[in-house]
Simulated scan of single mutants.
Amino acid sequence: MAESTQYLTLGLDGETFGISIRNVREILDMRPICRLPHAPAFLLGMIDVRGSGYPIVDLRLKLDLPSAPATDATRIIILDVAFENRIVGVGFVADCVYEVTDIDDRTMEAVPDVGGRWKSDYIAGIGRKGEEFVIIFDLIRLMAHEGMPSGMPSAAAAPAAAAAA
């Protein structure tokens, strides 16, 4: 039997990216975001989700992709991510969310070191779904990169799967 991992697939600037489903808490429609003074451009601000505040990161800006206005398909993905020896909650803005899909771990390819439109230091590998590629995020490296806020709130009531990740 093939070893596979489930990923939430999302769209950014015409590319398909994947986030391990173990980290996904929920997916929200786009909503107003409260700006934070002196925050880096990719940190859009904070939102409230059932009484808990979550910092919101624009993945396009984080990956040095061009900014784009929100559409009806734009989503905020609330994640539980390991950050500085704890699990924290953070939201990522994506152009759209496609589906949860299985990717065969044996087909995962290393990140090509030839440049490109996205920052490859945030990428864990390249998976395949049929004939299409899925760029898998390395959330720890994405979150630990310079400019991410160090005082992010701890995730409240993190799912057991996310806590084990």
Rank of each mutant, 00 (worst) to 15 (best):
A110G: 10
L8T: 01
V90R: 02
M30R: 07
V24L: 05
V49N: 09
D113N: 14
D95N: 03
F42Y: 10
M143Y: 06
F83W: 04
A165M: 11
G45P: 01
I76P: 00
E146S: 14
V88E: 01
T101W: 07
D64F: 04
S150R: 11
G116D: 08
T16K: 12
C96P: 07
C96G: 13
A82V: 10
E109A: 13
P55G: 10
D95E: 05
P66N: 09
N23F: 02
I33N: 03
A94Q: 02
A163D: 05
M46L: 15
A165T: 08
P69E: 13
D29W: 12
K62C: 00
E84C: 10
L44K: 01
T71C: 00
D58E: 06
R75Y: 08
G51R: 02
F17Q: 02
T71S: 03
G91N: 02
K119R: 10
F42I: 00
S52L: 11
I87A: 05
L142S: 04
K129C: 06
W118G: 01
R22N: 15
G53H: 14
C96N: 05
D138G: 12
A39P: 07
R75Q: 08
A158T: 11
I87K: 07
I56M: 14
V24Q: 03
D113M: 11
R106I: 02
G45K: 04
V88I: 13
R128T: 08
L61M: 13
A144D: 13
T74W: 15
K62G: 02
T101L: 11
R86T: 12
A144K: 05
A2Y: 07
N85H: 14
P149D: 06
D13L: 00
T16S: 14
G51E: 13
G130C: 03
R22G: 09
V111H: 02
P69A: 11
H145V: 09
D13Q: 03
R86C: 05
I123S: 01
A41L: 15
T107F: 15
G130L: 00
Y122I: 10
A2I: 02
I123L: 05
D48Y: 08
R75L: 04
Y54T: 09
A2S: 15
A160V: 05
V111I: 01
I87V: 12
F133W: 06
L10Y: 08
S120W: 12
D121R: 10
F83L: 08
L61A: 03
R25N: 09
Y54G: 03
V114R: 12
P149F: 02
A158K: 08
V81A: 07
